[in-house]
Design a protein around this nucleic acid. Structure first.
Length: 878
DNA sequence: ACCTAGGAAGATCGT
DNA sequence: CTTCCTAGGT
């Protein structure tokens, strides 16, 4: 977020004594008055300067939230109120954490290595957990499992329990367990009614055994990072006190997104450190569950100013309606010890993580949880022009249960928000592609353009389109680098080296590459391991000494064990990047892909190289593994000009001059699933998501909806999102799609703007449509590429772009047609003049090699740009 | 033990 | 249209 009123950077004076760390530098920059405070508006300044006691900053979109946070840190440091290591500053995403670090660096004139406790909830909780791992039955090198590992593990448990994983999918159980963990519930605290809903009452038992398994595997999942941290603090008051003492100031970003576990964690840390009386500390590990089976927070506070209240065994209702009497009884500020300086920043209108357990309630109840809190509202928006802000504000007023803020701007009205209808998702992509090119012609930078989608599968269509256009784009948070098979394999090797008990990793690679250790062999290792309660690796070590395995299998298993032992030894003396190379090499993993003749093998090898390159930034193997398990994102070259493509969720906190918002259709946005599962609350969350989307835009917001969209591979007719109707008419303009003809010449939109969409459905009775229906099952033409020319009703030109992927269906029912650009017309048809392995050149992507041919669409492995799909007419033989 | 074909089932959002 | 899983063949 870069508000126009942002402070200019002020580098540290050259001649300052460097003796101090950041604090010294920060102080040095404030000669006389605090210069960093200039340019803040009164509310922002208040939020920065109110250092003592709890503060809640309600910061609407674009009101300078991040700026307040970073300036506040600078202020704390420059006032000498705390050293960098005494400030705990938590965010939700790594992106946000990075952003804060960068901004702080700008402000203080240096890199901020000295802020060790600035990071995501999970990273920081994980870090604390690691330094006291033994206290929660883990070792400090424990593995953080990702969702895939989690599910595989649960599958094993389901099998062991003889539960049909068709009826009771592991995915579902994973969801339940996650939910419990988000609410801070350990297995014994899960309300029995809830635990029973899975697997004929075995849910609770499975949760228990899952946790046991995790301990044996020396592993923790995401939820554990917080949950186990909480347990650590509860069971070890001395450890807790250590952190309470350390953190003089706590700052929390996006407070509206905290879940119960995070809330509890913050709550524990924000107690003033104290001479906890033995009695109080004894009361700490109280259960979280009240009789009603609901989460009970009040019992968990060992705050000392309120000893009597805390001991009160009745499940007090901190939860629902704030009860003033209880609240005052627990009033921390009444204690002799001053309350902790905690500052939470958030916006209830941007709470979009309810599905992940976030409790908007946390922010709504802040004043109650932290009595005496000062609440500051930031309502001046420095980002968007008038119409955009009006649209966003008006939309969000349809929600109930808000704290209520009114964003205002002093900016010009600017352009109206546009709403454009497209026939189908392909046309939508085409229309947006054209608009982008037009913006580009007007001199807009691609970096200032973003497309924000509701679900990631919407991205593909845009990618295809942009590749065809040769328009550079960047997917943010897209197909995850670390989720690729080859990367996960490589990581599995490293994990086994790092943590020998990591069975999941061991199992993953024990027969990759093929070593003749198939299901039978693995099964027997499992039996062995289970019987003796030892990790698979240990079991393997024992088994090779016996003759239970066939000689061949036994030999290769022994070989593998020896290799791992050697690698572990080498770890001490070899740099970790080098070690990784050695491992991939000696294990035969690299070779496996080298021998592979399939198209993507080369790309995979590149990815492996990329992986090793990315390891360089880390001090050691352990640090690297820690990073990837939490970060999971790849920091690409961000300097190049490119359109950004991402989900609405990952767009939170970002801003762009031009924002495209496709897919505003019922069912997709708001998402049907959310509506089904969460009802009205879900709808409100979707609406907040829409609000977030609109408020990302500085100058242009362009909404799109398509009348037809492919869901699960079949075309479905959709109706425009209700959110479109909730926009203020004065700030919105309806435009024609530039990507095609609009819909069958159905001229303007009626007064109610979208009503005629439904009537449009009547065209489905037309003969053309029925023909299309009839043809659908086997709609493929005689030759692979799709329709032969004479079959096409469009005289051989394909107005739908792209030689026949996607929309065979649909092309028959279109009304009058506008043939779009030469781009499409150039597509020659079914056969390509290129052959596999041809060396080619592309205007945008440079040199490359053809790895796959599909009609006139080629998949090319470019030397620089990686693997892309392009239409053959855009490349030439090199 | 490994490979392949074929069928069935399934899909937000992300630390 | 995908991915995942199973069954059957080698």
């Amino acid at each position: 977020m870069t508000e126009p009123n942002r402070v200019s950077r002020f580098p540290a004076p050259d001649h300052q004594p460097v003796a101090g760390g950041i604090a010294a530098r920060a102080r040095a920059t404030t000669t006389g008055g605090a210069r960093y405070l200039a340019g803040l508006n009164p509310e922002q300044r208040d939020a920065v300067e109110t250092l003592d006691g709890p503060v809640l900053v309600l910061a609407g979109a674009g009101t300078g939230k991040t700026r307040v946070l970073t300036t506040r840190i600078a202020h704390i440091l420059s006032q000498g109120r705390a050293r960098p290591g005494e400030i705990l500053s938590v965010t939700f995403t790594n992106k946000a954490a990075r952003e804060m670090k960068t901004r702080l660096a700008e402000m203080l004139g240096q890199a901020v290595e000295g802020m060790p406790w600035l990071g995501t909830f999970h990273a920081i909780a994980g870090r604390i957990l690691r330094s006291h791992a033994e206290l929660v039955q883990l070792k400090s090198n424990f593995t953080v499992l990702d969702v895939d590992d989690q599910i595989r593990l649960l599958k094993q448990l389901l099998q062991a329990e003889n539960i049909d994983d068709k009826r009771w999918p592991a995915r579902m159980l994973a969801g339940l367990i996650d939910g419990w963990k988000n609410r801070g519930l350990s297995p014994s605290q899960v309300p029995s009614g809830e635990a029973a809903v899975f697997g004929n009452g075995k849910g609770g038992k499975l949760y228990t055994s899952y946790q046991e398994r995790l301990k044996i595997l020396n592993a923790a999942d995401f939820g554990d990072l917080l949950l186990e941290n909480i347990r650590l603090f509860r069971e070890n008051p001395d450890v807790l006190r250590q952190y309470q003492t350390r953190f003089k100031f706590i700052l929390v970003d996006e407070y509206q997104d905290t879940n119960v576990a995070q809330y509890l964690w913050l709550r524990l840390l924000s107690q003033a450190p104290s001479s906890l009386t033995p009695a109080t500390s004894a009361a700490v590990p109280s259960p979280l569950v009240g009789e009603g089976g609901s989460v009970e927070r009040s019992e968990t506070e060992p705050g000392e100013g309120s000893v009597s209240a805390d001991r009160d065994p009745s499940p007090a209702s901190l939860r629902s309606a704030p009860s003033p009497t209880r609240g005052e009884g627990r009033d921390i500020s009444a204690a002799t010890t001053p309350p902790k300086n905690i500052c939470c920043v958030g916006d209830d209108d941007q709470s979009i993580y309810g599905w992940r357990g976030a409790e908007v309630d946390n922010i709504l109840r802040f004043e109650h949880d932290f009595p005496g809190a000062k609440v500051i509202r930031l309502e001046r928006n420095y980002r968007s022009t008038g119409h955009i802000l009006a649209a966003a504000s008006h939309l969000i007023t349809h929600n109930e249960g808000r704290l209520g803020k009114t964003l205002r701007t002093e900016d010009v009205e600017g352009e109206k928000v546009t709403v454009t209808g497209a026939w189908d998702s392909e046309e939508e992509a085409r229309g947006i592609g054209e608009e982008i090119e037009e913006l580009q012609r007007k001199g807009e930078h691609l970096n200032d353009i973003a497309i924000l989608v509701r679900a990631s599968y919407q991205m593909r269509e845009f990618e295809d389109r942009f590749v065809t256009l040769g328009l550079p784009y960047r997917v943010i948070g897209g197909p995850r680098f670390y989720e690729r098979a080859e990367i996960r394999d490589a990581l599995a090797y490293l994990r086994v080296i790092n943590s020998p008990a990591d069975d999941l990793a061991f199992e993953r690679i024990v027969n990759v590459p093929k070593r003749g250790l198939g299901d039978a062999a693995v099964q027997m290792l499992h039996d062995h391991a289970r019987k003796r309660r030892i990790p698979l690796f240990e079991a393997a070590r024992a088994v090779v000494e016996t003759d239970e395995l066939k000689p061949k299998a036994r030999g290769s298993l022994r070989q593998l064990i020896l290799q791992f032992e050697r690698w572990r030894a080498q770890r001490e003396v070899t740099p970790h990047t080098e070690l990784a190379e050695i491992v991939l090499d000696e294990s035969g993993y690299t070779e496996m892909w080298q021998k592979d003749r399939s198209a993507d093998a080369a790309g995979r090898l590149d990815n492996l190289k990329e992986l090793i390159r990315s390891m360089e930034e880390f001090e050691n193997l352990h640090g690297f593994l820690e990073h990837i398990s939490l970060v999971m994102d790849r920091e690409g070259a961000a300097d190049e000009e490119a359109v950004s493509l991402m989900t609405l969720h990952s767009a939170k906190g970002l801003e762009f001059d031009n924002v495209f918002l496709p897919g505003w259709e019922e069912g997709l946005f708001p998402s049907q699933r959310t509506l089904d599962e969460q009802g009205r609350a879900g709808l409100e969350e979707e609406r907040r998501l829409a609000h977030v989307g609109l408020t990302r835009a500085r100058r242009r917001a362009k909404l799109y909806f398509a009348t037809n969209r492919r869901i699960h591979g079949t075309w479905t007719t959709t109706i425009p999102s209700r959110f479109l109707d909730e926009l203020p008419a004065d700030s919105v303009e309806i435009t024609e799609s530039k990507g095609g003809s609009g819909w069958g010449g159905a001229g303007g939109y009626g007064p109610s703007r979208f009503d005629n969409v439904e009537s449009f459905g009547s065209s489905y009775a037309t003969p053309g449509w029925q023909r299309a229906q009839a043809r659908r099952p086997g709609a493929r033409g005689p030759s692979e590429g799709g329709f032969k020319e004479e079959q096409s009703p469009f005289g051989g030109r394909d107005p739908f772009g792209g030689g026949g992927f996607g929309g065979n269906f649909g092309r028959n029912k279109r009304g009058p047609l506008t043939i779009e650009g030469e781009l499409v017309a150039k597509s020659t048809g079914a056969t390509s003049e290129f052959a596999l392995d041809d060396r080619v050149f592309h205007q945008k992507f440079g040199y490359g090699r053809v790895v796959k041919i599909d009609g006139n669409k080629l998949t090319i492995a470019f030397d620089k740009a990686g693997e892309k799909k392009v239409v053959d007419s855009f490349v030439a033989r090199a």
